[in-house]
Design a protein around this nucleic acid. Sequence first.
DNA 1: AGACTTAGTGTCGTACTACAAGTAAGTCGA
DNA 2: TCGACTTACTTGTAGTACGACACTAAGTCT
Lengths: 380, 380
Amino acid sequence: MAPAWTPLAGPSHTIALEVLVHGPLSRATLARRLDLSAGSLSRLTKPLLDRGLLVELDETRAPESGIGRPERPLDVVAESHHFVGIKLTGSEAYGVTTTLRAEVVAAETVPLLDPDPRAVVEVISGLVQRLASTVPVVTAVGVSIGGHAQDHRVVSAAPFLGWKDVALAEMVGAATGLPTLVENDLIALTEAESWFGAGTGLGQFAVVTLGAGVGFGLVVRGHQVTSPDFGLGLVGHVPLDPTGGVCFYGHRGCAAAMLTMESISSGVSVALGRRIGYDEALDLAAGGDPAARRVVDDSGRALGRLLALVANFTMPQRIVLSGEGNRLAVVARQAMEDALGSDRDPQALPVDIELRPGDFTQWARGAAVIAIQTYVLGRD
Amino acid sequence: MAPAWTPLAGPSHTIALEVLVHGPLSRATLARRLDLSAGSLSRLTKPLLDRGLLVELDETRAPESGIGRPERPLDVVAESHHFVGIKLTGSEAYGVTTTLRAEVVAAETVPLLDPDPRAVVEVISGLVQRLASTVPVVTAVGVSIGGHAQDHRVVSAAPFLGWKDVALAEMVGAATGLPTLVENDLIALTEAESWFGAGTGLGQFAVVTLGAGVGFGLVVRGHQVTSPDFGLGLVGHVPLDPTGGVCFYGHRGCAAAMLTMESISSGVSVALGRRIGYDEALDLAAGGDPAARRVVDDSGRALGRLLALVANFTMPQRIVLSGEGNRLAVVARQAMEDALGSDRDPQALPVDIELRPGDFTQWARGAAVIAIQTYVLGRD
DNA sequence: AGACTTAGTGTCGTACTACAAGTAAGTCGA
DNA sequence: TCGACTTACTTGTAGTACGACACTAAGTCT
């Protein structure tokens, strides 16, 4: 009943993956894309259709030229499997249920009152159970966290929760009875963009997130670039504005000092002499308040400089701007683009910047994508 | 007589490449590295040995554990083929002859008095002929240039020579009778480090060059990262020091203003009130002259910041520091390391920086590697 | 209606792979 | 010194998977 991807070998697996990520595709198109003969495609897709992993759509599509026999697109049944993704912050657990294609079908948020791992697992377990009840069966659970994860199993460090070496996957798995995987939140979000988001089919793109911190993910040739240091947030303290404020590490005008939601709202608060939240700060700037405008434009310029650095060093085809604080790019768009332009070679191609919805659903969806990937690529 | 690599298919080709790049390797080691059975390796290597593409070395090596039958390493005959590499600047052509393994066996430099393409081709042609006379036969010629190259054939832009859309490969090929390939100089140098230099076997590393300009190359998963903008030298104008000088584009304290040989020597010249060359400026700084020391240390700090940006954004396993001006990293080592450290997360791993001989032979060798790659990977 | 174009199916020969059995060449211990 | 052991390499066999090719299917264009 549950068509398992795990025993799929070589080209069959490649075909299934291509259809999963790049939507309905005809055999002929698959043959061209994967450099296989048409004959191989007939032979290879038959068992996949028999097992129900792929289905032949009823509709037909004319070939590119318009003439010739129409194509019969093949597709995966996105609703055949469901996954749960959980994103943990220091104070909340954000959860979603998704299909095999990472389409969100349910979402729920609960507060984390006690950072103790056992208490958090308790909360996650209840959340997973409620999210699971919206679908027939959940295949796997992904949990993402700001910090360092090892082998999809252990949270080796999570500063926001004060954790070190917590075997979170095992604990959640025991509490829910579902296979569970843990991953760094930025890696998870970047994978989601790579497989099912703004990076689909690009092969080379970057992700920048704005929120409580500043995050950066990089995909080259379809694979995410990481290092043992990844979870540390290396670009979070890149110097951007020599006249800017100071972060808690003492870096003047670094990304954390210029671009986090807290730095912007506190900058506007100081300027206006009263406590102002992030969204209110952006509203004031958009509404023409000169003090708020100045703070927000400074941040916008810093953002433009950061994006220029990303573009100059990593040469992405696109930069995806996500995170719950990415509205900055809308309100301070002119300042951002000016700074971006002046730090780029005038002959260079314009940078393709894609703004993504920055809510926490995206982060939780990223966690679900880790579960999806592990399911379709095989346990590891 | 000339064992051609071109008709090699699939696994045979992979084996030959692995031996070429990673030195003498036994069949057993190859089987483990390439995930093939021992039987396949026997079968696949036999025709390669018969054709003389590989040879079995006389020496034997004990296996890792020390016991068991000794290995018989296989190797390519580096001297079976030779290649010529030419690096063009605005005023000189630097040439080398190399073996199939990019070992330099001859070198020569000639001035370029006339930037007209036909005059340059004339000079190159004579240089190639003299370099070719040092070896029995030259298989191919590579030419590298600061600028943009298309399809290994056409120089679409080369600002130092004032060229646009020059069919250089065809012109040199016609003049010398040898297959000729053109490539951007940084791409060529980075490929040389990747196959036969400090990046061999790493898979993920960066190259930074100091000289007339500041260059940057990036390799991820064994493949170089490029974009249509590559030849523009995008990192050449990254801001590094808000108190630094101004480059001719008006960027304050950018890489070009802080790190080029000309910027450093003119900085010291202004401080001392007389014209001083690059090496002399570094000598003065090393000898304790306070004014030179200040200029050179400012540049060292800027270099440290640049390397930190490279490390933070691209997460390389190593940064290779090349280019004819890279002695700055030796003379201003302390300033560079201090700046590098303060722009990195204190918990991050130290950055592995490898200093390479920075003379023009390296640039010309890079051009030869483009010829080698095209020969062993097949024409493209 | 027939030529043409493209999609998809079935058959066959080839090439490559793993597996297994056997040989070669060394170390180690009694 | 000899046999047990380990690892490297060779050879034979059988199965698999691919592409080439011929064919059918289903449209458009003249």
